[in-house]
Design a protein around this nucleic acid. Structure first.
Length: 425
RNA sequence: GGAGGGGUGGCAGAAUGGCUAAUGCACCGGUCUUGAAAACCGGCGUCCGAAAGGACUUGUGGGUUCGAAUCCCACCCCCUCCGCCA
């Protein structure tokens, strides 16, 4: 949520920043907010004046009654004042509701350094490792997965429909130890606290991080319980400290959590969805940080580096992309995508998205801290990033380390955990 | 699912229809002090307003009333017990 004061004080700057997102920015909402804000303040001013009078008169009525004096005239007058107050209150509330509605549907302001434009304006920031080309015909992961009995897509589709993969045998185990290994890395080397969190969350929780109200179509929903399946661990974890006021020394907070993620991917059917490339349910290890505002930009670099370190240790080639305004998520102020090279499908696959949200989510979820004893509470800054999403990591792993004989060699760092050097028939 | 109890500032905790929602702790500023502690004074939520000032704030939302933390209705959460259950 944007700061209404900022909109009031610098409407042009806000319009310009939203305008950089193109049509999706909703810059036209700024004018309506300014009008509503003026109307709202007018109603509050009149209402407060009448309330002041009512309070004064009520006090007098109390005195008169205690003194046994009749106060009927004043009571009748206050009945009318009460009615007018109710009217003004309704006006104020309808302004508030509409302002809230617009703000909840207005995306975050991109940082100045975010390049303007659509997907084509995304910037390559750096790359690591060489995208491998096998000296033999490289095979896609769905072929390797089926032959090595790691993956059973047809049966997943039978049970739940397409986009619900089944991992089996060594495939299921490999995924499990990858999750375990990544969590341990974040806990032991990157200083994160591990969490296990709910997979079903309330409407309010989903609004706190920005998925609702605008992206209801993207989430699975259990109507009878009014609960939503999480699209990412970001949702329950970021909302963990909702409506709390933390002391300054509690920051920064760093959480890592493994969860399954559920996404309807409405409208994505048929495109780039083969195998594990785009599925409705997948596993992911997430990093979430709560930072003091002045540290958030630097923290984004740290968090991105933490996600990258996983690919480095596995020996997978990747590149880091700075998303342009048109590609930037709704709540994000700036995002780095990390894309891993998958030689079987011959494509770069997004395995992580690392973002800073500034105070946008903190405002929506009311995440505050007191900078110093005696000072006023401030909104903290939130960040998060995948580290990493499992399906595409598995894709890159299988396709990168496949051998001509159809087996897959495991990266050094996983061998001891896995208890073998390679996957074969 | 059923019965009962509860929800008041950062924390503890009083107030059962009316007079500024007490008081204590914590915290911030000041006085005093060589410095600190203690003591004393003031401050310590949100909104509107240039300011003076005013309004709002007792889990949430409604209602009754001139006036609600207090009475009524609905909902949420916590605790205790019962039932069911991996």
């Amino acid at each position: 949520m944007l700061d209404p004061r900022l909109i009031r004080a610098e409407p042009e700057a806000v319009r310009r920043a939203l305008g950089r997102r193109g049509k999706a920015g909703g810059a036209e909402g700024v004018s309506e907010i300014l009008e509503l804000d003026a109307a709202r303040r007018e109603a509050i001013a009149e209402g407060d004046g009448l309330r002041a009078r009512r309070n004064e008169v009520s006090r007098k009525v109390g005195e008169l009654k205690r003194g046994g004096v009749d106060a009927e005239e004043l009571i009748v007058e206050m009945r009318e004042v009460g009615a007018r107050i109710a009217e003004l209150e309704a006006d104020t509330q309808s302004c508030d509701a509409r302002i809230e509605e617009i703000l909840l549907s207005t995306p975050n302001l991109p940082l100045d350094e975010v390049p303007e434009g659509g997907e084509g304006a995304n910037e390559l920031v750096r790359s690591w490792g060489d995208p491998i080309t096998h000296p033999f015909p490289a095979r896609p992961h769905w072929e390797l997965g089926a032959e090595l009995s790691l993956l059973d897509l047809p049966r997943g589709a039978k049970v739940s429909g397409s986009g619900f993969p089944v991992l089996r045998g060594a495939g299921a185990r490999l995924q499990r130890i990858l999750i375990d290994w990544m969590l341990d890395l974040h806990v032991r080397e990157h200083g994160y606290e591990e969490l296990r969190v709910p997979y079903l969350v309330t409407r309010e929780t989903l609004t706190g991080t920005g998925q609702l109200p605008k992206f209801a179509e993207e989430s699975y929903f259990s109507e009878r319980d009014d609960l939503w399946l999480i699209p990412t661990a970001e949702v329950p974890v970021t909302n963990l400290h909702r409506d709390e006021l933390l002391a300054a020394e509690e920051l920064p907070i760093r959480y890592t959590a493994y969860t399954p993620c559920f996404r309807r991917e409405a409208g994505a059917a048929g495109k780039d969805t083969r195998g594990l490339l785009r599925v409705h349910q997948f596993d992911k290890v997430e990093l979430v940080r709560f930072e003091r505002p002045e540290r958030s930009r630097e923290a984004l670099e740290e968090l991105t580096a933490e996600a990258e370190s996983i690919l480095q240790r596995l020996g997978l080639a990747y590149r880091v992309i700075r998303l342009a305004t048109g590609d930037l998520g709704f709540s994000a102020a700036m995002t780095y995508d990390i894309e891993v090279w998958a030689p079987g499908v011959e494509r770069w696959l997004e395995v992580s998205s690392c973002s800073t949200f500034g105070d946008y989510q903190a405002r929506r979820a009311n995440l505050r801290f007191r900078p110093a004893p005696g000072e006023k509470p401030e909104f903290m800054h939130t960040l998060n990033g995948s580290a990493l999403a499992l399906p595409r990591l598995l894709v890159a792993l299988l396709e990168t380390f496949q051998r001509e004989d159809g087996s897959v060699e495991l990266p050094e760092v996983l061998r001891e955990r896995f208890g073998a050097d390679r996957l074969h028939r």
